[in-house]
Amino acid sequence: MDREPVVLYVEDDVNSRKLMEMLLKRRMKLKHVTILEDSQNFISNMQALDPKPNLILLDIHMLPHNGFEMLAMLREMSWVGDTPIVALTASVMNEEVQRLRNAGFDGCISKPLEIEDFPDTIARILEGERVWRITS
């Protein structure tokens, strides 16, 4: 890893946020973790981010903008480039994953999370691997 992971996570479910915060900050001890609880003012929130993330995790079922809309907005931003944007969702039926792939997500991590494997998964994604981790 050339630089330290800078993670952005957008999630409206409070328990999921709490869980991820523990995972990312406590377990993985990442310094740069931004967790947004809704998608309001998404564009201005993104512009305000500093440093810019090198991994973006998006929940899909959100308001006012869902994961697909956020993805589309991110793809418009020049700094995003090839920053991996990964869906973190409980909607993991084949047709739903198919929609994620078609929309242009770089990967998918399913809920419930396998927290033992999670750091490894993140590392692989940061190395450019496309992870479609769909487990029962």
């Binding site: 479910d13 328990n15 869980l19 409980a90 909607s91 993991v92 039926m93 809920k111 419930p112 927290i115």
Partner: peptide, 17 residues
């Protein structure tokens, strides 16, 4: 799909907490 999502989300918290 909605059922799956709605059941998995709390289980995520239950299992991982």
């Amino acid at each position: 799909a909605s059922m799956s999502h709605e059941l998995r989300t709390p289980l995520n918290a239950v299992i991982n907490f």
